[in-house]
Design a protein around this nucleic acid. Structure first.
Lengths: 196, 196
DNA sequence: ACTGTTCTGGATTGTCAAGTCCATTTATGA
DNA sequence: TCATAAATGGACTTGACAATCCAGAACAGT
């Protein structure tokens, strides 16, 4: 990398990250080489190594970061205003829609299973993502409890963890089987359990 | 492959499959080359291609098959006798134990995320595995309903799907974060929802 | 013991992808 | 405008890996 990035440089760098992310989502990390990324983003080797001097590993790290924030951003602004049943229903509907439509691949899960266990940096990114996701959900649960729409018996941390797991597991089954049946079943079961 | 396998041949073939599976679980599919497998199983290239003439793809298919049956066998005999709350508790305890101890990697999820979306044969294996897993759980739920220990209101298919998702999602989070917190939270939430 | 098959070792080949290098063009800022 | 730094193009090197091939050892059934 160079000391400073120009406007053009920023744009190219962003294009590389986004293009890589999209390519990985589409054809999987295993089939994504620098050539595929170059083709997709219209760049040369020099550019790739100019913006990511450490090579592919550094690029993948940036992609992981990008995907992690994307996952949360896709749920906003609903994610930060979960204060009523209506809001929860809108949110869960949004999740189901998103992943039913485009979500045959969760960008991160591809990276997780391949880099996660090995690379501590990717692990950290993913860990932080789950943490803030769960925190937002737990906060929403508490807010809804305060509004009297969810029983105070429900443990917000446990319920939030269960929600995240249903979504992630559901996506995994969606990718493996091609059907969103499991995702719907799991999410609706956990949400139903909030209605105690 | 040859027409018939001798005792020794069978043994070598099995050793290759099991060694490959173990290696993949430990260092990930991405880092598992034929060399790693050779080192682990003490075999030569000739042997690898003798028993799997189509090469790596054929071997990985056999590994997927092996892992798929392993996942179910690990739950047996409990899985086929889920007729009371005691049985369900034993089963879920067994699941949690297994994956908490060794289960940092679910062998199949590594294969799924890398080959699943692409390779229709692996997809089929995984699909069948989930199917029989869910069928066994649904059957157990029905049996427990018949015994009057679970409310007839519970839909066995949906609940079975939710259970599978909690476990798979929980394992994924376990692999990513290193903690079984999510797995426990999700499984216990779904099981609690059966107590209606 | 013998004959055909199965099993094993190791050298070799070919392909593909990551990473390096240098030359050239384009932008920035005084 | 001019000097400096950033951005880009593309050929080249290197290494890893799957897959092939041939020769020889071990084995099974007769």
């Amino acid at each position: 990398m160079t000391a400073v990035l120009t406007k053009k440089g920023e744009a190219t760098r962003a294009r590389i990250i986004q293009g890589s992310a999209a390519t990985i989502r589409e054809i999987g990390l295993a089939n994504t080489g620098l050539d595929q990324i170059r083709a997709r983003t219209g760049t040369s080797q020099s550019q790739l190594f100019h913006y990511f001097p450490e090579g592919k590993a550094e690029l993948l790290l940036a992609v992981a970061d990008y995907e992690a924030t994307r996952i949360l951003d896709d749920q906003r602004p609903l994610l930060d205003a979960l204060t009523s049943w209506t809001a929860w229903e809108q949110w869960s509907e949004r999740i189901l829609e998103t992943y039913e439509r485009e979500g045959v691949h969760c960008g991160l899960s591809a990276l997780t299973s391949q880099l996660g266990p090995n690379d501590p940096q990717v692990r950290a990114i993913i860990g932080r993502m789950y943490e803030s996701w769960e925190a937002a959900l737990a906060e929403g649960l508490r807010a809804t409890q305060r509004a009297g729409e969810i029983s105070p018996v429900v443990n917000p941390e446990i319920a939030a963890a269960a929600l995240v797991v249903s979504i992630q597991g559901g996506i995994q089954l969606l990718a493996a089987t091609g059907s969103a049946r499991h995702l719907r079943a799991a999410v609706s079961t956990v949400i139903a359990s909030l209605r105690t």
